[in-house]
Amino acid sequence: MFPLQLLALVFISSTAPETPPEEEEKKQKFDLMFRRGDLLEVPRTLFTHFGIYLGGGRVAHFIRDILPVVSGDTILIKQIVTNTRLILGVLAKCGSVRVDSVEDFAYGAEILVNPMDKVLSDRVK
Rank of each mutant, 00 (worst) to 15 (best):
D104F: 12
T19C: 12
G56V: 11
V70N: 01
P115Q: 06
E18D: 14
R123T: 13
G57K: 07
M116P: 07
E110A: 11
L4V: 15
V99N: 08
D100L: 02
I52L: 09
I12T: 11
S13N: 14
K27F: 10
V70K: 04
Y53T: 06
V59N: 05
I77C: 01
E18A: 15
L91I: 06
T74F: 15
E110M: 12
G95S: 05
I66Y: 00
I80C: 04
C94P: 08
F34P: 05
A60W: 01
I75F: 08
R44H: 10
K93Y: 01
G108K: 09
A16M: 15
L91N: 04
F34C: 03
D73M: 03
L86W: 05
I111D: 07
V42C: 08
S13P: 10
G37A: 07
P115L: 02
I80P: 04
G37C: 05
M33R: 04
G37R: 10
A16W: 08
G56P: 09
F34Y: 03
F2W: 13
I77T: 03
I63T: 10
L39R: 01
R35I: 09
V42T: 08
L54K: 11
L39V: 08
V69K: 13
I66T: 01
V124R: 14
I80Q: 02
M1G: 15
P17E: 03
D73N: 02
R64C: 15
G95I: 08
G72E: 08
S101E: 13
A106T: 00
K78V: 11
S14I: 11
A106W: 00
S14G: 10
I80G: 02
P21W: 00
D31L: 15
K78E: 14
G108S: 04
S96L: 15
S13M: 14
H49G: 00
L120R: 10
L91T: 06
I87T: 08
T48E: 06
V99M: 13
A16R: 09
G51M: 04
A16H: 11
V124M: 15
K93A: 06
R36E: 10
K118F: 07
E24H: 09
P43N: 00
K26L: 13
L32F: 09
A109H: 13
V70Y: 00
D73S: 03
K93I: 03
T48H: 05
E24F: 10
F47G: 11
A8W: 15
P21T: 06
G37T: 04
V99F: 09
K29F: 09
V124Y: 10
M1Y: 11
F30M: 07
F2G: 12
N83Y: 00
L88N: 01
G108C: 06
K27Y: 11
K26D: 13
P20F: 01
F11K: 15
E23T: 11
K29D: 12
P20N: 03
L32Y: 05
L4Y: 12
L46M: 12
D104N: 12
P43L: 06
D117V: 09
H49C: 05
K118R: 14
S121P: 12
L39G: 02
A109I: 11
P68R: 03
V70S: 02
L7Y: 12
L86E: 03
I75W: 08
P3N: 07
I87E: 01
L112K: 08
Q5L: 14
